[in-house]
Computed example of a mutant assay.
Amino acid sequence: MDIHEFLDLPHRFRWGGVGGDDCMTFPASWALTCIGIDPAADLRGTYRTKDEARAIIASHGGELVFMDVHLVPMGAKRVQQPQTGDIGLIKAMTGETMADQMETLIGAICFGPLWACIHPVGVRAKPAEFVAAWRLPC
């Protein structure tokens, strides 16, 4: 399955990555599709809220360490020039209402000059600043 087919699937936002994906399990689902390894396998179903997700990420030392811990053991390599299909940690505005909007670090998939990420209303591809990116082993 290529990136276009993956992004065209009927994705659904769900905290905990069961029956859908959240901002960190979405790129993990892409890795599972690409290489047959789920870097979020140990986490799926262990949390159900944003606060529980944040606690898990904090227990790893933050988003960057969290993603490194889950991607590097499966053979993903850090890259400076992301290409389509690479997994990234990006800066994005999140929040359920305009009053809740805040800059957050989330997982995403490089899609040309854009980054695809999961949102409560589905997958969105938008320009974003990336903090780090990893290339999956192929």
Score class of each variant (00 low, 15 high):
1 M>Y: 11
1 M>D: 07
3 I>E: 04
4 H>G: 06
5 E>G: 06
7 L>Y: 06
7 L>G: 03
12 R>C: 06
13 F>G: 01
14 R>A: 11
14 R>P: 00
15 W>S: 02
15 W>R: 00
16 G>A: 10
17 G>Y: 01
17 G>V: 01
19 G>I: 09
20 G>A: 14
21 D>F: 12
22 D>N: 07
23 C>I: 00
24 M>A: 10
25 T>F: 13
26 F>Y: 09
27 P>K: 04
32 L>A: 13
33 T>A: 15
33 T>W: 15
34 C>R: 15
35 I>T: 05
35 I>H: 09
35 I>D: 04
38 D>Y: 11
39 P>M: 08
39 P>L: 07
39 P>W: 03
42 D>H: 13
43 L>Y: 08
44 R>A: 03
45 G>M: 05
46 T>Q: 15
47 Y>I: 02
49 T>M: 13
49 T>C: 07
50 K>P: 02
50 K>S: 15
53 A>Y: 00
56 I>T: 07
56 I>N: 11
56 I>R: 14
57 I>K: 05
59 S>V: 08
59 S>H: 13
61 G>T: 10
62 G>Q: 07
63 E>T: 04
66 F>E: 03
66 F>V: 03
66 F>A: 06
72 V>F: 01
72 V>A: 08
73 P>K: 13
73 P>N: 05
74 M>F: 15
74 M>G: 04
74 M>I: 15
75 G>I: 08
75 G>F: 09
76 A>N: 02
77 K>Q: 15
78 R>W: 07
78 R>F: 01
80 Q>G: 13
80 Q>M: 10
81 Q>R: 14
85 G>T: 12
86 D>L: 09
86 D>H: 06
88 G>W: 02
88 G>P: 00
90 I>A: 08
91 K>V: 06
91 K>H: 12
91 K>I: 09
94 T>D: 01
94 T>P: 00
94 T>C: 08
95 G>D: 02
96 E>V: 03
96 E>S: 10
96 E>Q: 11
97 T>Y: 12
98 M>L: 11
98 M>A: 14
99 A>Q: 13
99 A>G: 03
100 D>E: 09
100 D>R: 04
101 Q>G: 03
103 E>W: 12
103 E>A: 10
104 T>P: 02
105 L>G: 00
105 L>M: 05
105 L>V: 00
106 I>F: 11
107 G>Q: 02
107 G>T: 01
107 G>H: 06
108 A>N: 03
109 I>N: 02
110 C>Q: 11
111 F>V: 08
112 G>H: 09
112 G>S: 05
113 P>H: 13
113 P>T: 05
114 L>R: 15
115 W>L: 05
117 C>I: 09
117 C>Y: 15
118 I>W: 07
120 P>V: 09
120 P>H: 08
120 P>Y: 11
121 V>I: 10
121 V>M: 06
124 R>F: 08
126 K>T: 14
127 P>M: 14
128 A>T: 02
128 A>M: 12
130 F>H: 07
130 F>Y: 11
130 F>C: 05
131 V>I: 15
133 A>S: 12
137 P>R: 11
137 P>Y: 13
